[in-house]
Design a binder for these strands. Structure first.
Lengths: 121, 121
DNA sequence: TCATCATATGAGCAATCGTTCATATGATAG
DNA sequence: CTATCATATGAACGATTGCTCATATGATGA
């Protein structure tokens, strides 16, 4: 008996090879797709999403955020670190207090589109 | 000695109470924020992101996707289930083959904005 | 009816994630 | 300097995630 041509991954025989070839050519590269999904991963936690929504309305310190969102200072601080390393927020120090704000207009644009999406239907 | 007013969550005393009150009024409700972050969570996996990018170029069957993305049929099928239950893809059956396609124009819009974001700087 | 094929799905596992707790850092006031 | 306060961070944990493997489903053709 003959071995299948697609044995490792896809065990079917009637794939649409021409379509696959075309799509492979038209799709974005793997690298930018990965980066985009990493961006979405950061948005994909409700604590971080709430932080970003709050910072869209005003610059706030860690303590403000923890009072506003009713979460511990530590939890907020950990999430701010993730948001900052993803360059979604920026910070400025004033004495002992560190103020955070949105780093980028695109953040809000993407969120607005997503809100539009979930509010329709 | 008096007990702190903010003892449970935030142990600082000099929060900006008026700003917090204003932001609390201007922010979206907790529920839609949660839904938006759930939406992003689905986008936030590179396998699902690649599936969506592929389906943006053409309707494809499970086998096509598994060949195109070089992943097992099972892995693809599991992810398609998540995408379908999030109503990001739709399917149609033709004999034994199930064809998947994007369910919604908004999906692509949100992705396009995200691609713009990561490609600048 | 039965074998075959494309797809779907449940259990299990390793990896990742978000929080808590304890503690460190770094600026300020006395 | 020292005490205090806002913030940052490392370790540890329970929960969730994405994949694999084995098997189930459901349509087709003989």
């Amino acid at each position: 008996m003959m071995k299948s041509e697609h044995s490792e991954i896809c065990d079917c025989n009637v794939i649409h090879e021409d379509t696959i070839a075309r799509v492979r050519g038209e799709m974005p590269e793997e690298d930018p797709i990965y980066e985009v999904s990493e961006l979405f991963k950061v948005f994909g936690d409700s604590t971080r999403a709430r932080i970003l929504c709050a910072l869209d309305k005003s610059e706030l310190c860690v303590c403000d955020l923890s009072a506003l969102l009713n979460m511990t200072q530590s939890a907020i601080s950990h999430q701010l670190r993730i948001l900052k390393s993803a360059r979604m927020v920026k910070s400025r120090r004033s004495g002992k207090v560190v103020y955070y704000s949105l780093a980028d207009d695109h953040i809000k644009q993407i969120f607005d589109l997503a809100f539009e999406h979930i509010l329709e239907d």
